[in-house]
Write a protein that binds this DNA or RNA. Structure first.
Lengths: 354, 354
DNA sequence: TTGAAAGCGCTAACAA
DNA sequence: TTGTTAGCGCTTTCAA
């Protein structure tokens, strides 16, 4: 076995191979199991002497309490474990949310189980089942939009859930969101202020509220400026950077080019930037993206973004979940973590003189 | 409670609130618990009729097996849960490893608990304890180097561990590594081929084998070319992009500048690039980095890297762990996932004519 | 302050 | 093919 044995520990032989139980500790300390239980759980009412004896025995046997056994018998049935379901743990936004969730969870001694669902409905179902079977105390979910909301009613039964980034339609639940519409309007206002009138829009999976709200923010901003939406400059349902690059190439192929592009998500901004650069127009067509991303400020030109704060979003979601688990009152809460416009260079490109 | 109840399901009242057990299913189906257990675990030898009856009852009650109870009784005591300890889940390398681990784990129905340890020895200890108490079947660890290897002997007792990226000193265990020395030499050979003789080195925490091997690769490459190491151009123990930026600024401040820089880690490459760009020399001093990173190819100039394959590393580590859990033979295995040089533009900058 | 007995939800071992 | 009994490691309940 690669199982590590205790290098240089005194009692290698007794403790090394076999996991010791409370009973082992009890018999070594010469007390009852219940006394050991009291010591391990820091319950009051154990004499100093026994306390010391039990501790020593536990140390000697390298005793580790068994969460599942404890949980099984315990009245509240808490596992001190929560689940986090995201699109893809390797994605910059998801992993920042994850980090925020971990921060909050660690403070409370709660462990985090993660599952990437990759926009796949069946994986979404499987993940819920897997987490439910492991009796997580709660769930934080960035819904993929692939599965309909029934997953959350059938599957989530009995587990408190907090949704992040977007709530599935028709399910009233706690959620932590970004102000998508306002954020997009702020980005658009900035472009309009700089004289842009011909602006293209690159949007994500339209079924998601997030994407929908950002599109509406775009449309609202144009409407407020008295500019009609040009359907040929609006491409939605884009799923990855390559989709976005292709969309930009198509738009650029026309004689009638926009002077600026709004990309509604970080992967789309990256894809758009790539296409602009490959076409050699990265310094002549303006770009604003929703979501910040690493090195956005190091590109040429540095990309202006409407930045979300995914780590804070994750932390708030976890805190909301813990409150939920504790009180369980019946009014779903909706938290908005504001976005902010970070003006860099890509939006400062003026429209060409007509 | 925000706990979701089954929207539109037939048996909301029975199933909604209370979690049902095997006993509930058994009594609803009119069979014994053991029969239900057989059905749930797909054991053979149950008549078609009872099978159907049990399944219907389970469905009706929205029954979910309880992993911890099952695990408690089961002979092999497997929890079908594993742990992953990384520096920081939000880091690009870590999260790619995580994704690879998840890929392999999902195929086997194993859930992944994650913990970020942020190079903090006490967090490393806490995480091991937390995971051990939850009885994970195995552990994949990217050691921070902050804690000494005793964590892995004291703490890891009884749990199979696979180390990734670097193995802690003095512990013989399975690990999955990159060919750090070779990779670095390949990057250096490329720079030397292009005529560079004055090359600076930016290294990570020197205590880690990874960083040490990369430094040795650098030194070896210079030695082979008959070039002495210039101590003022070697900066090690850099922990983040800012450290790297500062180091580059210091190096640039001297009259005697290098013509190229080798950065031994992705965060350091980013920091180095930033400093070069801010000094306006990003197009005149060559740069090669270890580790690829998002948008490296979109920078100006696109950054040449020695790319690791962190997702594959994660997958291989998980597969190695599963083998370990299954067989448990006693020879630690060491897997090397090769890196490869991706030549982009930053290394094609020639040294200025002497 | 301490401990004995029962039982959490499930599966192993065995019996019918 | 089906069911019964015991017990996994722990906490609850209650008695000493």
């Amino acid at each position: 076995m690669t199982t590590l044995s205790g290098h240089g520990r005194v009692n290698d032989l007794e403790s090394g191979r076999q996991r010791s139980t409370m009973r082992d500790v009890a018999s070594l300390a010469g007390v009852s199991v219940k006394t050991v239980s009291r010591v391990i759980n820091a319950e009051p009412g154990v004499s100093e002497e026994l306390l010391a004896r039990v501790r020593r025995a536990a140390e000697q046997l390298d005793y580790r309490p068994d969460f599942s056994a404890s949980n099984l018998r315990r009245a509240d049935r808490r596992t001190s474990t929560m689940g986090l379901m995201v699109e893809d743990v390797a994605n910059e936004f998801s992993s920042a949310v994850h980090a925020g969730v971990e921060d909050a969870a660690r403070e409370r001694g709660i462990a985090v189980l993660t599952a990437s669902i990759a926009g796949d409905a069946s994986r979404e179902r499987d993940a819920v089942r897997a987490l439910a079977s492991r009796r997580v105390d709660g769930l934080i979910v960035v819904p993929s939009g692939a599965a309909d909301s029934s997953v959350w009613s059938e599957g989530g039964v009995g587990i408190p859930i907090v949704f992040v980034d977007r709530a599935p339609r028709g399910v009233a639940a706690d959620c932590v969101l970004t102000n998508n519409n306002d954020g997009t309007r702020a980005g658009m206002a900035h472009l309009l202020d700089r004289g842009h009138r011909r602006i293209a829009f690159l949007g994500g999976v339209a079924r998601l509220d997030t994407a929908q709200e950002r599109y509406e923010g775009f449309a609202d901003a144009l409407a407020a400026a008295g500019i009609p939406v040009r359907p040929d400059w609006v491409v939605r349902d884009l799923r990855n950077p390559d989709d976005a690059s292709a969309a930009v190439r198509t738009i650029l192929a026309s004689d009638d080019r926009p002077t600026a592009i709004f990309a509604a998500q970080n992967l789309l901004s990256m894809g758009a930037f790539r296409a602009l650069r490959e076409a050699g127009v990265n310094r002549s067509i303006a770009l604003v993206g929703f979501d910040d991303f690493a090195l956005a400020d190091m590109l040429d030109p540095a990309v202006t973004v409407v930045a979300q704060d995914p780590r804070t979003i994750g932390r708030r979601a976890a805190e909301l979940l813990f409150e939920r688990m504790a009180d369980g009152s019946d009014s779903p809460r909706r938290l908005v973590v504001p976005s902010r416009l970070i003006v860099r260079e890509s939006s400062l490109i003026p429209p060409p003189p007509a």
